[in-house]
Design a protein around this nucleic acid. Structure first.
Lengths: 344, 344
DNA sequence: CTCAGAATTGACAACGTTGTCCAGGGCCTA
DNA sequence: TAGGCCCTGGACAACGTTGTCAATTCTGAG
């Protein structure tokens, strides 16, 4: 009876291993390892023999095995809501850039804003033993990460704070930014200002709404409940909501739209109407300067959000333990025209 | 002398292993493995003991080790130019979605359009033994992948064909799309039509240019060399180039812009001028319908590009060997106004 | 020519998991 | 009660690499 070696069916045919190289070069396994890693203590002659064998066999070191032995994976995980959202592009890019500088690969996952999927993805990444994790939270309870972090997993939350655990976080000054944006509208004479925002369960949405209320209160303006429209950010909801705000018996004269998707839908609706309505949006977006009127926005720096998070993460990976840190990045009001339209 | 075990400094503290769980549950190592993987042949009693130990220690299976043993990594690599480019967002998203459906993680890398970096990234992914690879090529010589593919690495190229090797590819009908776009301008009475494009070394750019020439030739129109402006797609180059086309003694009456970045810059330039100039752009972009006039575009479906590539990749991973395939996805002319402006 | 010391090399275990296979115990049947 | 079978559980090797350490060879000085 022939013996049946326990080689499981492999994805990648049969790739040569160091053992194969060693056999071919008539050399010990460890010597091959030394050559591959450029370690000293191998004669030029041996190096050449090994390198010839490597070339002949088309050997490439298996980093998965290597990193298992080394006890780290040289990879970090990034979990966000949706890669297709233009807000996350520059953020991912910045994280990736920093990772690259640290010789680290980036594993990517989109939660589609579903807490369950966020959890699933994060735990899958933990199982892979990523060295660190950057998360844009979808859920509001991250206690499931406690054992992982206790075991040494570095984690940084971005854009929204972690829920029910203490951890590093990099946030935008949502409250202050929204307040400034609304105050800008007030300064240009508006009194009846609507707030079109995301579901209030989302931290950023709640903070921006708080900023709106603060600005109104500071100006001594009462807020009519009908001026605040919260809900999903798809055009299906936002389009009708904006139209309703403008078509009532006593319409608002200005809109504060609380994120880029909402702003873009509002711009579409406004473009289809004659009357000029003032508009300030949270988040900058491409072509904000080209539509007419150009859109005044409270801009946040998505790339800097990613860079800061990555910096924090690698700091934690390289340094010693320290207390969780919370960074808040300022926003920038970009005046372009739509926010300076006087009330009609 | 105390013995010094060869435990390398680990990234993640000391996480419990199956061995630890086995010790605590007073059970063999393999039994723990069976419980963790839900394999049959373990009494309910033993299962419970093991599960208690798992919970008590906060054990989580190390998938890196698992996959090393299994001979696959359940991950695929995606290398593209720049995650921050809005064109790649939907594409990545589609790839990720498909990967998710196959229980596979996505490792991401941006080449920044540098062939050297593409190679570096791709080879790093090969060293990790990703099961498959989706590449938007930056370079034009991919022979370095030959040994990898011979060893069984599934590879699919997207958006641009591979260079000097034979492999799966999913492309857009660049030639046909550009020809249709330019023909559209010709049908609306234009004779002096400029082409503003990317560096001609890039396959998509060359194909679109070829489409432009074909449409002009089919209409019996001669092309003045000064109408063709090729180069980097940054605003620094494109802005002046567009202005030059419109300000000569004998200016063009229409522009065909060969990708989204160029189109957006052109829109900016045109927005700053009185004269209406016809414009058709390759690639759709957000707010193309809102700027004025709304921009007529030759749209390609980035998400479908990603989906098709992922489908091809997983087909290859699951199926038997087959000859490399080349898919070409059609474009769609979206008429919005800017392309129907008559010549002035 | 001999021997110390340095340089080179390789055998072996370990990283954390899974596949193979065998041992032991319980149960049923004859 | 003996024999056979099934069920459960565990020992061991293997995945492909690196760390440790001992064995071997080489060098040069005395």
């Amino acid at each position: 009876m022939a013996e049946a070696p326990s080689r499981p069916e492999s994805r990648y045919g049969t790739r040569p291993t160091m053992k194969d190289v060693a056999a071919r070069a008539q050399v010990g396994l460890k010597t091959v390892s030394r050559v591959v890693n450029g370690e000293p203590g191998v004669t030029a002659d041996t190096v050449q023999r090994v390198q010839e064998a490597i070339a002949a066999l088309g050997f490439r070191r298996n980093d998965s095995a290597r990193l298992l032995r080394k006890g780290r994976t040289a990879s970090i995980g990034l979990v966000l809501e949706d890669l297709a959202d233009p807000f996350y592009g520059p953020m991912s890019r910045a994280v990736e850039e920093t990772a690259r500088a640290h010789g680290t690969l980036l594993i990517h996952g989109s939660s589609a804003a579903l807490p369950e999927r966020e959890r699933e993805l994060v735990l899958a990444l933990c199982a892979r033993r990523v060295d660190g994790l950057i998360v844009v939270p979808a859920g509001d309870d991250h206690r499931y990460l406690e054992p992982e972090m206790a075991a040494g997993l570095a984690t940084v939350f971005v854009d929204r704070p972690p829920g029910r655990i203490d951890a590093d976080a990099v946030l935008t000054a949502n409250f202050a930014g929204a307040r400034a944006g609304v105050a800008h509208l007030i300064a240009h004479g508006h009194r009846r200002i609507a707030f079109v925002g995301d579901r209030p369960g989302i931290h950023t949405a709640a903070e921006r709404l708080r900023g709106y209320h603060a600005a109104m209160a500071e100006a001594g303006l009462a807020v009519d409940a009908s001026w605040v429209a919260l809900g999903p950010t798809g055009p299906d909801r936002v389009g009708p909501a904006v139209r309703a705000l403008l078509e009532g018996p006593d319409p608002v004269t200005a809109l504060f739209t609380a994120n880029n998707r909402i702003t873009v839908t509002a711009v579409r609706v406004l473009a289809g109407r004659g009357l000029p309505v003032a508009l300030v949006g949270f988040d900058d977006f491409e072509l904000a300067d080209v539509v007419s009127p150009a859109v005044t926005v409270v801009a946040q720096d998505a790339a800097e959000l990613g860079r800061a998070a990555a910096r924090l993460l690698f700091g934690r990976l390289e340094g010693t333990a320290r207390a969780p840190e919370r960074l808040e990045l300022p926003t920038r009001l970009i005046v372009r025209g739509s926010g300076e339209t006087p009330p009609s």
